[in-house]
Nucleic acid binder design. Structure first.
Length: 221
DNA sequence: AACCAGGAGACAT
DNA sequence: ATGTCTCATGGT
């Protein structure tokens, strides 16, 4: 199948997704950690709580006692784990000298090095690193998530057992390194996943099957 | 009432 | 390198 054609079909079907839902680059970074294996609606409450307590900044988060930070982000789940991860991320930004303007992290190194430095931060795995690179810093690093693997497996573009790195290489090979394209495509894939590629699919009559001729014969898993 | 959500780390194999 | 367990709230 043609991956660019799939993007166009998705855009036509679902319309622009306006991702990432967040007002500032730092808010996007925090959201990237909080949404790990968690529904976005829960993350919104946690971020609202942080805002309501003037805690949505690098220094404010680092200044909060763990128990207080955990209480604020409680609705996002895994609050003890995410408390440590948020602090590790903020500590990293502080040490980079971008505590007041986290978006300036993008000026400090080329994309591959930035990615490696993010991956070295506790609690920042591949998807979180790429989410930060793409949606907070505006750099063309494709985000691969559970929906991406499920949707493309079901549409016939992947076998389903590829590693994260292998899937990302595939996207980078199939598409021009355009940050706006990567932004919209990933968001559209999530929209597709939510509607048609849940673990237990309710509706298998996906209107996008026309773009992916092999999809009809694929087992749903 | 089980199942799941825009994962990552620790640990064993 | 790859597989399994844990972390936790709140929707459907």
């Amino acid at each position: 199948m043609n991956w660019m054609a799939l993007h166009d079909a998705l855009l036509d079907h679902f319309g622009p997704q306006h991702w990432w839902p967040g007002e500032t680059p730092f808010e996007v970074m925090v959201g990237a950690v909080l949404t790990q294996n968690t529904a976005w609606t829960h993350v919104e409450r946690a971020i609202s709580a942080l805002k309501a307590n003037d805690a949505l900044s690098v220094r404010a988060i680092l200044a909060l006692p763990d128990t207080e930070l955990a209480a604020l982000i409680r609705p996002a789940g895994y609050f003890n784990v995410k408390t440590r991860r948020l602090k590790a991320l903020c500590q990293f930004l502080l040490e980079c000298g971008v505590a007041e303007a986290p978006e300036q992290l993008a000026e400090q190194a080329p994309l591959p090095e930035l990615r490696a430095r993010l991956l070295a931060v506790h609690g920042v795995g591949e998807e979180t690193a790429d989410s930060i690179l793409l949606y907070a810093l505006g750099l063309p690093s494709f985000v691969v998530d559970a929906y991406t693997r499920r949707s493309f497996t079901r549409l016939g573009g992947l076998t389903g057992d590829e590693s994260y790195a292998a899937i990302q290489r595939r996207f980078h090979a199939e598409l021009p390194a355009d940050r706006r394209l990567f932004n919209e495509f990933h968001a559209l894939i999530v929209a597709l996943g939510k509607h048609y590629c849940r673990p237990k699919p309710r509706c298998v009559d996906c209107p996008l099957l026309a773009v992916c001729p092999h999809a009809k014969t694929l087992p749903l898993r």
